[in-house]
């Protein structure tokens, strides 16, 4: 049997959920028996070619690049999973959603107490992805098949979910493994 393909990415996240993936400890040896990693920060593959069985998305959509990456994942992944609170509800980056974007920029680049910006310029280089008006949960941008909450989801939660998906078992997590913190 050929190995299942897994892709992962961190959009507007802190890589904490990826750390939690690594936190499955020695079980990662079992995991590499089951899966082959496609696009992922772990191997630095830049784009998904072909079809991937499971996509894990950390972080919400804060800028245009996040949206483009998320759409690539949706297009190429049979099963797409929102991994962690930021992907599910925006998380800490979504704290800016209660403040208009213009005020966020002004605070960050013009008025903040530690800002040194004599030209009074707000970065607008075309190489920098433009911010969205708000941070969006992934399922408000594309269809998401499963949500694994947590900040981060525990290694046990990720392991149980991946194991179920890769072995075709129903994804029914015990009470103790579904937590929002």
């Amino acid at each position: 049997m050929s190995k299942a393909k897994v892709a992962t990415t961190s959009l507007c996240g802190c890589f904490g959920c990826h750390m939690s993936v690594l936190d499955i400890d020695e079980r990662i040896l079992d995991l590499v028996q089951l899966v082959e990693f496609d696009r992922s920060p772990i191997n630095d593959i830049k784009h998904i070619e072909g079809t991937v069985d499971v996509g894990l998305v950390e972080g919400g959509c804060a800028n245009e690049e996040n949206v483009a990456v998320l759409r690539e994942f949706r297009e190429h992944c049979k099963v797409l999973i929102s991994l962690g609170d930021c992907a599910i509800n925006g998380g800490v980056p979504a704290l800016r959603n209660m403040v208009p974007l213009k005020e966020c920029f002004e605070e960050a680049y013009l008025q903040g107490p530690t800002v040194h910006n004599p030209e009074g310029r707000i970065p607008d280089d075309p190489e920098i992805p433009r911010l969205l008006d708000k941070v969006y949960p992934c399922h408000e941008v594309v269809k998401v098949d499963y949500h694994l909450p947590g900040c981060p989801p525990s290694a046990d939660t990720i392991w149980a979910a991946l194991n179920a998906l890769l072995t075709g078992a129903p994804l029914e997590l015990p009470y103790q493994l579904v937590k929002y913190d």
Binding site: S82, G90, A94, H147
Partner: peptide, 13 residues
Amino acid sequence: GITAPKYPFLFPQ
């Protein structure tokens, strides 16, 4: 058993 709300977030002030 809620893992994500089905409605869009409002982010009110």
